[in-house]
Amino acid sequence: MNNLKNVIFFVTSLQSGGIENYLLRFLEEKHQQFCQITVYCKGGLGGQLEQRYQSIPNVKIIKNKISFYNPLDYLELNKFFKENKFNAVCDFTGNFAGFILFVSKLAGIKKRIVFYRGSTDHFEATFVKKMYNNLARNFVLKYATDILSNSKAAFNFFYKNVWQNDKRFEVIYNGIDASKFNIGNENLRKEFQIPDHAFVVGHTGRFNSAKNHAAIIQVATELIKENKDFYFILCGNQVKNKLESVVKEKALSDRILLFENRSDIPRFLNTMDCYYFPSITEGQPNALIEAMLMGIPIVASDIEPIKETVPEKVYPFLINPMDVEGAKNKILEIYHSEIKHNLQEWTTKKYDSKKLFQQFYNHF
């Protein structure tokens, strides 16, 4: 396969999130196998990861908002495609890739890839939005040469009666470099002023409704009031900004510690005795995979993408994301019995980045 391809990837922004971190890791691993890489932020925004993207030698970043409805944007995009002579286009925005793929077909780009990173729709379903979404999905089905997802759950949602009989569809799980999480006993308890004997429950992930921080705060509040050993640590985009006033109101700022994005996630995870992940919807959560790599016992949602991500022996610790009492009981079970899930070996093998990034690269 010719490894000197000129490729363009479409994302919404370069804020820290699952899509953006996945693409960053892929390009850090595989950039030398492309002659030119363009990362097009079609929301018109950069973000926290922009500097890391810029540090990759052959990556060019474009920040230009593309409207869902303005045909002039797509005429300009067609001109841009033709001028740059791309060999391949890959759009990470699911159904909303449809019109990008149509324009890339018009421009003569032979390889047109869509990569679904969520397992459900993420918008309020008005009549107009549903019509647009269905039309865009039909364009994906017609104009994509490769349709990828990081979960079977996504394909079962978007293409239930289609995907298993169409060779363009492939599930490619997230790749994680396990060596970056091999840090021994390094943790942040001293820095955070958390006693050695404390039981620390944690979460990593940006603040939005799908991540269900409301349930985390409710569980934390009740467990801390019932037990002086409990501490909670949370980090991610907008987490401190959105939750600080809530935690202060409860007078729990010394027991529920909030942080924005951190660059020391392995040490942050190593500070925990339990990882709590009550997401309402997911694609395939890197954050949960990272926690399993660190050997932390987990309590998580019983939604299909998470059941697909973890081994069956963890299923007893998957609960309804809205079940606060159930989450408390599972966390207390881990606290009282010192349960160890010992998932490092299983996780390292299943989510080996070299194997899975090569699987994605093969589509170019």
Rank of each mutant, 00 (worst) to 15 (best):
I256T: 00
I256S: 01
L257H: 00
L258C: 00
F259P: 01
E260H: 00
N261Y: 01
N261W: 01
N261Q: 09
R262G: 02
R262H: 02
R262D: 03
S263T: 10
S263Q: 10
S263R: 03
S263D: 12
S263M: 01
D264H: 02
D264K: 00
D264E: 08
I265F: 02
I265M: 08
I265N: 03
P266K: 09
P266F: 07
R267Q: 14
R267T: 07
F268M: 03
F268N: 03
F268W: 02
L269M: 11
L269W: 03
N270V: 05
D273S: 09
D273G: 07
D273A: 04
C274K: 05
C274E: 04
Y275R: 10
Y275M: 11
Y275F: 15
Y276E: 06
Y276G: 03
P278H: 05
P278K: 05
I280R: 14
I280A: 12
T281Y: 12
E282Y: 11
Q284T: 13
P285Y: 13
N286Q: 13
N286L: 13
N286E: 06
N286C: 06
A287T: 15
A287W: 02
L288W: 07
I289N: 06
I289G: 05
I289E: 09
E290G: 04
A291H: 04
A291K: 06
A291M: 09
A291I: 07
M292T: 08
M292H: 09
L293A: 08
L293D: 02
M294I: 05
G295N: 13
G295T: 08
G295C: 07
I296G: 03
P297I: 10
A300D: 04
A300L: 02
A300R: 06
S301F: 05
S301C: 06
D302N: 15
D302M: 06
I303S: 08
P305C: 13
K307L: 15
K307P: 06
K307T: 10
K307C: 12
K307Q: 15
K307H: 10
E308L: 10
E308Y: 11
V310R: 12
V310I: 11
V310N: 08
P311Y: 14
P311F: 14
E312C: 04
K313L: 13
K313V: 13
Y315T: 13
